[in-house]
Simulated scan of single mutants.
Amino acid sequence: MARTEPALADLVAAARAGDRRATARLLTVVENNTAAAPELSRLVKGGDAQIVGITGSPGVGKSTLVSALIAAWREQGLRVGVLAVDPSSPFTGGAILGDRVRMADHALDPGVYIRSIATRGHLGGLTATTTAGVRLLEGLGFDTVIVETVGVGQAEVEIASLADTTLLLLAPGMGDGIQAVKAGVVEIADVYVVNKADRPGADGTVRDLKAMMSLVRREPGEWRQPVCTTVASERKGIDDLVAAIGKHRDWLSEGDRLALKRRQRAAAEIRARVDADLRRRYRVTDALAEAVANGETDVASAARSVLGDTG
């Protein structure tokens, strides 16, 4: 460990100075939860990055919008990190879509770091290590960290517990306006974005969203989600979207809202780590599963035996 610590410290220093290879190596430590991960956590602490989550159905233009947002924040002189979650290849386990080509304009910018990460079978639109990755980038001095989820359905809402501000992208012509009334993902959004707004039906999608929101009762001072329209491929509407994200950040900063959200995120991360450790510690054997399947014992008794509960 004496030899490992200086190496990690050197990587951290290089990553904070903008070395993307060093950042990549540190994220690999986090993603694979290697033996160096605890020491890395001690070396990289703090940070006050704005965490922006971007979610929506496949094909609504999430990656293109991310690219446009990166450009806008870079014009403000902000350092931007992106964790883009892709489905896993069934053969290699790696990220399968490779749609980071839509962010190729930023490939040589030292103020931008983009990482594709595979879900590895994890549900919810994220990965099991996304939160740790966000915490690392925040500690390395990034001003804004964008988390782009894998294309999600109605129940994949983990992003809300991770991001400070969650954007939900919809597109006209995909039925999203009607789905918005019932989809669980809509309930988590802080800002609605109707992308590809130059297409027919965009106005109808906006109307559907506003009609839906008019049915929701809000107490005085509660956040009311704005509806932004964008054509991300042409960077239209991006300035208004950046302003809406900033207003939500300002609203969170009033009172204890942002601190509460960060505490909730930390608690969720702790619970996830405890769950993972418990699953590793208390393994269900094939013999025990077979005993339950054959009716030799019941599920509750089997669970108690796994936990070592003899009472």
Rank of each mutant, 00 (worst) to 15 (best):
T92K: 09
A243P: 09
R281N: 06
R281P: 07
G175Q: 06
E234S: 10
L307H: 07
A72V: 01
R199M: 15
R100I: 09
V193Y: 08
A268K: 13
L307C: 05
R249L: 12
I117R: 07
R262F: 02
A35H: 11
M213N: 08
V274E: 12
A107V: 11
V112W: 04
G184F: 11
V66L: 15
V112P: 12
E296R: 15
S305M: 10
L27Q: 05
K236F: 06
V216C: 05
K196L: 07
R218Q: 05
A17V: 00
D208K: 12
R249H: 13
V231Q: 00
S67K: 04
T55K: 09
Y113K: 05
R3A: 12
H248V: 01
Q264K: 09
L209G: 02
T165E: 03
A171S: 14
V152D: 00
A95H: 07
I188R: 07
M213F: 15
R102W: 09
V284T: 04
Y113W: 14
A276E: 15
R25D: 04
D309G: 03
R3L: 14
R135K: 14
Y282C: 06
T64N: 01
R265Y: 00
S88A: 15
V60F: 08
L215T: 14
K261W: 01
R218H: 15
G77R: 05
S88I: 11
F91M: 08
T205Y: 14
A95L: 06
A300W: 13
G53A: 06
A268M: 13
N32Y: 12
L162P: 07
V185L: 14
N195H: 05
R249I: 04
T230C: 09
T165G: 02
G77T: 01
V30D: 00
